[in-house]
């Protein structure tokens, strides 16, 4: 177990270093010049050059990358070009809001997705099933900003049940979390539906019936625990999906999280902040997968950690 954990953490660290390299190369190749952004439109060529020198942007690529990596290993993620703050501080102040949103969204999508999937599977090929699958198809296809704005219009503007934007109370979380979880709910309902249908056809379910067990017990004790297994691995991967959604949803709802931070940084080529946000989301994805792999053997005795 501990040997397994050490190996997986080591692998995760390697993956993260790989990601720093790829991101760094991509940002290096971006045609926009951060120095020009800092200096402003009217600045002279000399001023821009000075800034470039100060930031070390004229150094060869590998020197820049090495400098970044060594600093990163000492816990220094650099300083924002545009905001007078350390990147780590910027992220630290915004991360809790994003984590809260993410947890709320995961709860939402699992609650909706799994319930819909189970109901659809048990009412397979009946009108209820068809209706739910149309809903899940819509939720997968609809862009998040459309869903977000639609929810805002109906529930915040027209009905006034929830605040239009901002951060602070439980009521603030509801709409962004539903928007973010909407897509996932669609995916999970489809996966859960086919997983439950698959398990319902297996021999041990017939054994359970032959034992004389009731329908509720067969479903709760025999079908669902087996049907949920393939879903667990998906939740780990899902965190990646959230990271892209969070940028959109946080802008729509004015949610002060790292998605918003990333969006501002990308617009203004604030390279250290972009790098920092990328690293945080990459870490979240890697840890999410690791967590899913660690949970799987607890649920399924056939999986051994090795």
């Amino acid at each position: 177990m501990s040997a397994y954990l050490v190996r997986r953490l080591f692998e995760s660290a390697l993956i993260l270093i790989g990601i720093t390299l790829v991101t760094f190369v991509l940002l290096y190749l971006v045609p926009a010049d951060p120095a020009r952004q800092i200096a402003g439109r009217s600045a002279t060529v000399e001023t821009v050059q000075n800034i470039r020198d100060q930031l070390g942007l004229n150094d060869p690529f590998f020197l820049q990358y090495w400098r970044y990596l060594t600093a990163l290993f000492q816990g220094d993620m650099g300083r924002s070009y545009l905001q007078r703050a350390e990147v780590s501080e910027l992220i630290a102040t915004r991360l809790p809001a994003s984590l809260l949103l993410m947890v709320a969204a995961i709860v939402t999508e699992l609650a909706f997705g799994l319930t819909i999937g189970i109901v659809a599977a048990l009412r397979r090929n009946k009108p209820v099933d068809h209706g739910l699958m149309i809903f899940s198809f819509v939720s997968i296809s609809a862009p998040q900003f459309v869903i977000g704005i639609l929810l805002l219009y109906v529930f915040a503007v027209k009905l006034g049940w929830f605040p239009i934007g901002g951060y602070g109370t439980f009521a603030h979380v509801v709409l962004p979390a539903v928007t973010l979880g909407f897509l996932g709910a669609g995916w999970y309902s489809r996966m859960m539906r086919s997983s439950v249908i698959d398990v319902l056809g297996q021999d041990f379910v017939r054994t359970a019936q032959a034992k004389g067990l009731g329908k509720a017990r067969i479903i709760l004790r025999h079908v669902l625990p087996n049907a949920i297994l393939p879903i667990i691995a998906m939740i780990g991967i899902d965190i990646g999906l959230f990271m892209s959604g969070i940028v959109v949803v946080e802008s729509v709802f004015g949610w002060p999280g790292i998605g918003q931070l990333a969006w501002q940084a990308i617009q203004r080529v604030d390279i250290p902040v972009i790098m920092g946000v990328t690293m945080v989301s990459a870490t979240a994805i890697v840890l999410g997968n690791l967590l899913a792999d660690l949970v799987a053997p607890l649920v399924d005795p056939r999986i051994k950690m090795k």
């Binding site: 021999d203 041990f204 054994t207 019936q209 034992k211 004389g212 067990l213 009731g214 087996n226 056939r302």
Partner: peptide, 24 residues
């Protein structure tokens, strides 16, 4: 039927490998 199954008429199947719940 639930009261009959296993209590009065029990059944064993061909595939012992898949006839038991793997998680219990």
């Amino acid at each position: 039927y639930r009261q009959i199954r296993t209590a009065r008429v029990a059944m064993i199947f061909q595939e012992p490998m898949t006839s038991l719940n793997p998680l219990m």
